[in-house]
């Protein structure tokens, strides 16, 4: 009886689903709109050199000493992040 999805059960579920959808939408994680048409997702084929002499072109060996240890210091649950309001807070992972 649990496994057998009858016509009646199906119809009831569809009707209930339609009713739910007419009210508040189902739970969504989007609390903000993508205001700029997802700029950061654009194609990224640019006609330019990056032009800086930054670390980007260096050997990864330069990082082995310091950068790789970064994560080992602690997970992001205790990582400090700068929030959009400029405040420094501990990064957290709880549902919003």
């Amino acid at each position: 009886m649990i496994n057998r999805t009858t016509t009646a059960a199906l119809a009831a579920a569809v009707a209930a689903a339609a009713l739910m959808s007419s009210g508040a939408n189902a739970q969504t994680a989007n609390t903000d709109k993508e205001k700029c048409y997802g700029i950061s997702m654009a194609g990224k084929n640019d006609c330019a050199a990056t032009g800086n002499n930054s670390c980007a072109g260096q050997s990864k060996a330069d990082y082995d000493a310091k950068a790789w240890k970064y994560v080992a210091k602690g997970s992001c649950a205790t990582m400090e992040v700068t929030l959009k309001d400029g405040m420094k807070r501990k990064g957290t992972l709880m549902p919003m």
């Binding site: 640019d46 006609c47 330019a48 050199a49 990056t50 032009g51 800086n52 002499n53």
Partner: peptide
């Protein structure tokens, strides 16, 4: 037409086509 960067190192100069 675009902008370029001027990189100086050890008295040597390179221009880089950066568009930035």
């Amino acid at each position: 037409l675009a902008g370029h960067a001027v990189l100086e190192k050890d008295g040597e100069t390179l221009l880089v086509d950066t568009h930035d």
